[in-house]
Design a protein around this nucleic acid. Sequence first.
DNA 1: GCTGGCACTCGGTAGGATCGAGTGCCAACG
DNA 2: CGTTGGCACTCGATCCTACCGAGTGCCAGC
Lengths: 332, 332
Amino acid sequence: MLDERKASILRAVVEEYIQTAQPVGSGHVVDAPGVSVSSATVRNEMAALETEGFLAQPHTSAGRIPTEKGYRYFVDALAQPSLDRGSAQQVRAFFDRAHGEIEQMLLDTTRLLTGLTDYAAVVVGPPADVGKVRSVQLVSLTPRVALLVAVLANGVVEKRTVELGDDTDEVVLQGVVDQLAPHAIGQPFAVVADVPAAMDPVTEAVLARVRRAVGTSVDDEADHVFVNGASRISASFEAVETVRSVLTILEQQLVVVSLLRDVVDRGLNVAIGSETGMQPLADCALVVAPYTVDGERVGTVGVLGPTRMNYPQALAAVAVVGQRLGHRLSEG
Amino acid sequence: MLDERKASILRAVVEEYIQTAQPVGSGHVVDAPGVSVSSATVRNEMAALETEGFLAQPHTSAGRIPTEKGYRYFVDALAQPSLDRGSAQQVRAFFDRAHGEIEQMLLDTTRLLTGLTDYAAVVVGPPADVGKVRSVQLVSLTPRVALLVAVLANGVVEKRTVELGDDTDEVVLQGVVDQLAPHAIGQPFAVVADVPAAMDPVTEAVLARVRRAVGTSVDDEADHVFVNGASRISASFEAVETVRSVLTILEQQLVVVSLLRDVVDRGLNVAIGSETGMQPLADCALVVAPYTVDGERVGTVGVLGPTRMNYPQALAAVAVVGQRLGHRLSEG
DNA sequence: GCTGGCACTCGGTAGGATCGAGTGCCAACG
DNA sequence: CGTTGGCACTCGATCCTACCGAGTGCCAGC
């Protein structure tokens, strides 16, 4: 789409702008690799790149800054992911000593990504219906309150408080579990809500409440998203107003989840500015990678930073972390 | 300590400064209640309040702003907590329909506090050793990985991944649980690490790994802190630099926990600026209230905002939420 | 087609004038 | 003697102007 010289100029502008956050003038571009022409020629080319929509001028007589289209071209055609040796080592070390607790691991993974990129990191964990139930248990907390605890094969623990109508003893609860377990084991957690009615009316009364407890919290996808490094957002932007609106988005877990899902569903690994579909993220870019367990896409990792983000680094970090995380989770 | 007129003037300065964030001049104070003297007299009094350390001048010929000492006097002697009708209603509604999941409830409580005050909210949950173990279970995830799940009486679920040395079948795990349960039930979770050795060497091998898994994560206090409304921090300060440093603190859960504990231990319900003991919070104030379950202090709720925060509102909100939360948790 | 040269643009910075909110002080007053 | 109106003074904020310089667009010549 762009001839080689234009591409080199665009690359130079993007790379310098990412570093300095200042509009880039023709004089700075001349000594970039792939550009062995005078600044006057560069000026002509830059003017062309502007009319084609890749660059923009904040005002006449200023340098150029990349547009969304410019970043997009850079990401698609010019940037190649690269991870420095230290970071690669860091990732390896992390996953070598990672152990235990799936949720703790996902949380730690956001820390890893934040540390690697210096941007805010997001990890969306496997939805509840991916893991098959391995164990169901009903634990009495008080005579009128019990806790339903289900352990899934992927290590996730789902729990729901069940408020009992009447004082209920352990024997009844055990009866409920006996009814529940054969139905639920090996199935996704949600099917617990479909457990068939029991003969015994006392058992059935409790079962009804169990169904309700499981059914009410379908919105629990929010439980499985981890965000970290929000403070880095404030390091990325000058305007406190921008910081506020971006942080507000990051606080809404459901929004974050659907944002990531949306981007992944569109087959993108980078969403730049308005491509995110969210007005407050107009100055942000989102780099994501899905991760797979046993060949199935179960979650997403990503980083959120300014549009002028270090794409090669972010792309590499997100890709390798997603891959390693998938491996780690696959082996149990 | 201050005569009535000085107190009225101090109150007027603090209240206006909280609203406007602008230095307050003598002219604005004259028509405050309790001040029926001329601006010249007010000026004299304000100069006195300055030498006594309650007020400060950003520069000659500007109005006065409160010092930490000024805020402290305001909080101790002049501010009386007050919650507007709507907020009181909101709190009542929240705890009436609150149900289920202790952790979910604590998280929702931070949202409530953020909504009430428009400041960042923090809730520290009961430490693991408060809840007595009601149930222990060991669930096999893969042949070499099992999950230890303990349900505590207060509804908290503790879980630890246990990596098994060799392929281990359900029978062995059940044997381990049989050894574990009588020892742990009714005790704090931590004592699981002290389970006595088993006769059977295979069982004992697994037990050893269980002890390790329980013992390694003593730092899990961080698990029980919930922070919400960090975006409000960026609404409270002009300088993006300040926002960044405060957010960085809020992201470190262990720091937040020890900060709250420290403040509560000193018997304070408000920590202003340097009283927090953290340099990055020099421009912040922290309002906290412990909450009790069955008469025992088990956690803390609090809000973090700028030193020029609405103390009457924040004090009232934190106090009533702490109280209601304690009640709610006491009844199970 | 590329390049050096040149006139032009315009944001950013620095200096200077002005404005006004606010102060400290003092003399006068009840 | 505490209070008050008056007054000179201070100093940040705002506005204007001049100026600088990085950068541009264009053009004539190579």
